[in-house]
């Protein structure tokens, strides 16, 4: 599976909006102000209330996080931020598992 080109290779404008111009995370009922920052940091030092850069989030969500052998798991091996390599691998359902949808 080759790299998935998300942006213009000529380094033109990104095809989608960057932070600030995006709709709020879908359905997020808890506003940043409700999420209290750890008391140890001042508001300036904390991310709370600020829009988090997508790139920092993707570093963590695509490279970090616990990896489970889910019934459907995308194994996203690597992210190069011009070409996002999304290697989708379905983990087969265990033999005694129920039939898929």
């Amino acid at each position: 599976m080759g790299p998935v080109l998300l942006r213009d290779p000529a380094r033109g404008k990104p095809e989608c909006m960057m932070e600030g111009a995006l709709p709020e995370a879908a359905g997020a009922e808890v506003s940043p102000t409700e999420v209290s920052a750890p008391a140890d940091l001042t508001p300036e030092e904390s991310l709370a209330g600020r829009q988090i850069a997508l790139i920092d989030l993707l570093d963590r969500l695509l490279n970090g996080g616990a990896v489970l052998a889910g019934d459907v798991v995308l194994s996203i091996a690597d992210v190069d931020l011009v070409h996002i390599n999304l290697r989708a691998v379905i983990r087969s359902i265990t033999p005694d598992g129920p039939a898929p949808w």
């Binding site: 998935v4 998300l6 942006r7 990104p14 095809e15 989608c16 909006m17 995006l22 709709p23 709020e24 995370a25 879908a26 359905g27 997020a28 988090i52 997508l54 989030l57 993707l58 969500l61 459907v72 995308l74 996203i76 996002i84 999304l86 989708a88």
Partner: peptide, 19 residues
Amino acid sequence: MKAQLENLTELEEIARTHH
């Protein structure tokens, strides 16, 4: 999911909601 994650707008929505 592959289709969704290959679209940066949808990837961002999933990532931000997850987060």
